[in-house]
Each structure stands twice: as C-alpha cells, then as structure tokens.
Design a protein around this nucleic acid. Sequence first.
DNA 1: CTGAAAGCGCTTACAG
DNA 2: CTGAAAGCGCTTACAG
Lengths: 362, 362
Amino acid sequence: MAKLTIRDIAALSGLSKSTVSLVLNNSPKVDPATRRHVLAVMRRHRYVPSFAATALAKGSTRLIGMVVPGLSWHMVASINIGVAAVTERSGFDIILYTATNDRDYGSLIDRILTSSMASGLLVVSHEQPLEPLVQLHEEGLPVVLVNTIDADVALPSVTADNYDGALTAMDHLLQLGHERIACVQGRMTYRCCQDRYRGYLDSLRSAGLQPDPELTKPGDFLPEQIRSRSHELFALPADQRPTAVFAHSDVTAYAVMTAAAEAGLRVPEDVSVIGFDDIESAAQIRPPLTTIQQPFIDMGKRAAEMLLAEIGPTDDSSEADVVEPPAELPRLVMPTSLIVRASCGPVPVTRSPRGRSQTTKA
Amino acid sequence: MAKLTIRDIAALSGLSKSTVSLVLNNSPKVDPATRRHVLAVMRRHRYVPSFAATALAKGSTRLIGMVVPGLSWHMVASINIGVAAVTERSGFDIILYTATNDRDYGSLIDRILTSSMASGLLVVSHEQPLEPLVQLHEEGLPVVLVNTIDADVALPSVTADNYDGALTAMDHLLQLGHERIACVQGRMTYRCCQDRYRGYLDSLRSAGLQPDPELTKPGDFLPEQIRSRSHELFALPADQRPTAVFAHSDVTAYAVMTAAAEAGLRVPEDVSVIGFDDIESAAQIRPPLTTIQQPFIDMGKRAAEMLLAEIGPTDDSSEADVVEPPAELPRLVMPTSLIVRASCGPVPVTRSPRGRSQTTKA
DNA sequence: CTGAAAGCGCTTACAG
DNA sequence: CTGAAAGCGCTTACAG
C-alpha cells in the first residue's frame, strides 16, 4: 500500500540504490543481467519513481507548459491533439495554463520560469504582450509560439500560411469569374487576419482589379457585427453588390450566408462564400462550406517537435552552461489547403434581367 | 541569473532557512515584522520556490491531472475553461493527459498514482474502462468524472441531465403539435446518448404516443450515416414521414437539415429539427438551430470544486492516514436549457393538398 | 560493473 | 518567535 521507493527496490533486488538508479536512467554501465533483474523486480512491484524526487535531483522536469487562450476554439483542441501525439511519445507530460482574464500573465510566466516547473513552453494563440516571453527565452527557457498573433517577435514559431491561404481562396473565386469580391474581416489586431487581408488585397491587384473599399467590412468575429455589415454589402445596388465574399473564418462565413439568405440571395447561385479554418461543421451545413483548411494538428506536432529539439537531449547537456540558442530562429510556416465544397459557384452571368456588366478593371 | 534558493533568501534577510520556510507556508508562528521583511526580500529578488523541492518535501504536488479524449470537441474546451477558472484561484495547476490511441491507459493511470505526480484526477468524457479509476480512488486518489459515459460506477461525477434535456426537447416539439417525431441517435455506447434516447421514448409515451421504431435511426455521430438514415426518414410516405426530428447533437442536426433540404423539405416549415449541445455555430447557421444547451463551463467548475474538496485542505490532513471517502458519492447532475431559435416550428397542418391526418395515438 | 556519500531545495519536528 | 538537523526520494561523481 505504501509507495515503494528506490531504496525498497534496492533491498528487494539485493543491490544498492545507486545501481537501481543507474538502470532507471538506462546507464550502459550496468551489467545486462542485473539490469534485467532489477527491471523485473520493479515491474513485479509496479514501481514508478517519484516524480518530484527525480525532478529535484535532475534539476529539470519532464513537463512542458502549454498556454492556451480561454476560448472554446476548435483550434486549441486540434493543436493539442498534435502536441499530445508527440509529447506522449517522448515521455513528456504537458501542463496546461489556460488564459483567463483574472490571471496575471507576468507573474504566471515568472512562476513557470523560476519554479523550473516546465522545461519548455508552447504558447498558443496568445494575445498578451510577448516581451516577457522573449526575455524568458533569452534566459534559456525554450519557447515556441503556435499560431500566435505577432509572428515577428524574436521567438521560434509555427503558424499557418495565412497570406497564401488567402491567395488560394481568392484564386478559387477569381477562377470562377468573380471580380467584385468582398472581404469580411476577423479581428484585425491578429496577425493572421492582417495576413489574410493582405492576401485578399494583393490577389485582387495582381488580377488587375482595383480593391473597392466599399467591399471590405470589419467583422471582428462578432456575429452581430458580421451580420449587419453583410447586410450593407447585400443592400448595395445590383451592379455594386459583391458576387462573392471571402470570410476570415468559417463561423464568419456562416453569418455571412445567413445575411445573404435574409437578403433573399441564394448561395452559391447569387453569391459565393468562402471561409477559413475548416471546422467540423463546415461539411455538414447547407450548402457545405468551401473553405481554407488550417493544419492545426500538424502545427501542434511540429511545434512540439521544435520545442523538444530546443529542450535537447535532456540527459547529456544538463550542465553545458547556457546552451546558445541557434542563431537563426526557426520559423515554420505551414501550408493551408483549399477544400472545395458547395458554397462557391461561377459568377452569375447576368445578375439581373438587364444583364449589366460588372467588371471594374483597374 | 542563477536561480535563488531558500538559502539565498535566508542569507539575504539575515534569517535561517527554517524561518523563511515558515513564512512561505504562512505559519502564524513567525513574527509579523520578520514575515514582512522576508516577503519583501523575496519580492525584490523575484524568488519563487522550487516546484520539485516543495513537492518532494511535502509529499504532494499542487497539480491535478485532467484526462481528455483525443477529439477536437467543443465540449472539452468549454469544460477546461470552467476547470481553469477554479484551479487557478486555488493555486493548483493542471496537467493534461490527452487520450490517443497509442497511449496505454493502464500504465498511464498507474504512473499518475505511483509517481504521485497529481493529487487528484479529473476524467473528462472517458471511453476507457473505468475500473482502474475506481481502484485508484479506493487507494486514496481523489477522482471525479466529468461528462463521462458510465455514470453508474462508484466514483464522484458531474454530468448534464441528458434525460431531462431530452424531455425538454421533446416537450418543445410536442407543444408545437408534433406527434411523429424521429430520433437520430448519437453513439449509443455513451451513457449520455442512452439517457437522451430514454427521454425521447418516455416523453412520447407519457404524451400518449406510441414510439414508432421506424422513426429511430442510428447515427453514431457519423455524418455519412446520419445523412443516409435521414434520407430514409424523409423518403417515407407523407403520412408516415416525421414532422420533427430530435438529433443527439448539433452537428447531427446539421446533417439532418442537409438531408431534409436534399429531400426538398424546408426547415422548419416542413420538418422541425432540434439539436443538443449548443455549439458556437448553432446560432449562426440557417435556420438558427433550436437546441438543448449543455452547461459545460459550469460542469467544469463544479467538477473542479468537487475535486479540490476531496483533495482537502492540503496542508493539515497530510498524514491523517487514508482519509475515508465520504460514504455517499457526490453525483452532480446539472440542468440543461432549451435555446429556442428557428429550426422548430408548428406541425404543418396539412402536409399535402390532400390533408391526410397524421396522428397515431397509442 | 557496483556501492557509499553528498547533494538537489524544500519542510518539519524538536530545541531553545 | 527562531534556528539546527534530519528527511523527502532520487542522481551523480567518486572510489573500488
């Protein structure tokens, strides 16, 4: 009943604690026979070394911290699945810090560092100032940013290629013949949304189209705002009305489609709508949403791999002074993919019986 | 740069480690003046006690384990928000175990217990055998089940009132005049789905209606299956076709609505659809989904509170032998709520020009 | 290849 | 109210 310690295992197998410890740490110095014996004893008694004692003696934990936003996002869950897949294979456990409003970030970060609770930090979709993190990183704590707003900070990061994703989305629309394409933005303080918007603009321009400011609407991921801004879009005179809209997220696209329906417009016959994310329901709604898929699970995996690499071999380089971080910061930008479903169609040839031309070449 | 230890703080404040430790642990025995002094020194040097050393010395960590399924569910994220809100207030951190297929459950559980890594376990939507957990619990590890399949096991738990939620959903439909109500089930190995189905059946019966086996369709949360089973439903002759369907989840409801549209049926004019969960997109799709909301955030909060209560005062009862678990297992069943939106309407008075009667009173 | 000893950074009786 | 000492369960040189 009482928990076994290394001393018990030592006694049970007729050896010293030192030797038992060596087999625990896979030392090659121990005789294969004795190693097998010790292992057998440990297994028989279901011995598991004390987490705390190991951490204290080694000076580091097998824990990586993961800070996530306090939002019920699809994204966080998916990223976590990827992270879990790689950490569990490496014997690391992850300790979860959920950002809530009450939580004081500065002291949280501080605590993680100084209590040496975690040997690395994965920061997911963080909206807080990043300075404390770069400082942490400079002091030697491995940190990698995942899908985080400001990717320009001096920290390793993995993000989706939001700019290219936007290009791809626009390309799809352009190839269907659309020229009056609206953009309903997400939260523009997020780097990812800025990138998507840049993609929207650049894509239009390189197609020789002049972006119409009238066709850009702030949405901020707020359903009500998206709905009313979309109504403005659809209330435009027939020749100014967009024939397609690029929404900065799937849920944004849902709201746009609702507004379209309320305006008596059919999707995709009268107006095409493309989203961004590819959440679970995107394939189930009607019409099934054409969207840009973000590789969240893979992003989680790669981020975890980068972090583990930064943490290093754990055993060897323990005291190798402050390991110099690689000169070039790893910045992984992962490709998105276009998922074609049914919410985008060819541009209506004649929007009204009058069949006005809608092109506005620059 | 080098991390400060309690010994440094002791030196810096001209006291012994013992005294410093006492202030760290809020002992009333230390002089208020010296306590203030020590506190000031610690703050000035941003001292944070070593996590591992504290854990070793105290014999317990301020960590609670949370095991979640490897699925990108809305639910998990929401429950976590609730859990985080209470744990952060109590100074506990949470260590996240994500269930993946590779992971060997038995040994995971074992490791948590024996390494005394966590002082309690929150088990969310677990699909694995629960026996190892009850054994763990009997050996003294606080455990609480959250939204877990089998709530009959001898473990504290918090779940949503799925049975009552189903009753409420059915009531809404019944009051709108529906009598031929179909049920598209979720994964029937889950206790929650069984409860929802029981609610469906009981509700029908107590309304004096004979459940028609023809109107129950397995869906198993599989979009394809849901779609094709729904088509069977909508292909029924007009007088046997359901006028409403109770779906075991929101995403299931989406798929049902798509099938309805494909069958040329309008929602809610021709057929009403009610979901279960209230995910983020439910309000954004068209028509906005009427559904039963599960209080995931609150469930997380209450579960965390229960666990913390079981873990106890942490400091005092450390060695009070095996604390007898309370004779009655706490089993919290939380109420759901009906969110009325637009996917359910009154039963069509005349479904076809012929105006056949559709009642099938038992 | 194995063992005795010191140490990791705290906490906790026990003296004073 | 404060300090010296032992102990928590490991790991890691250092001998042998």
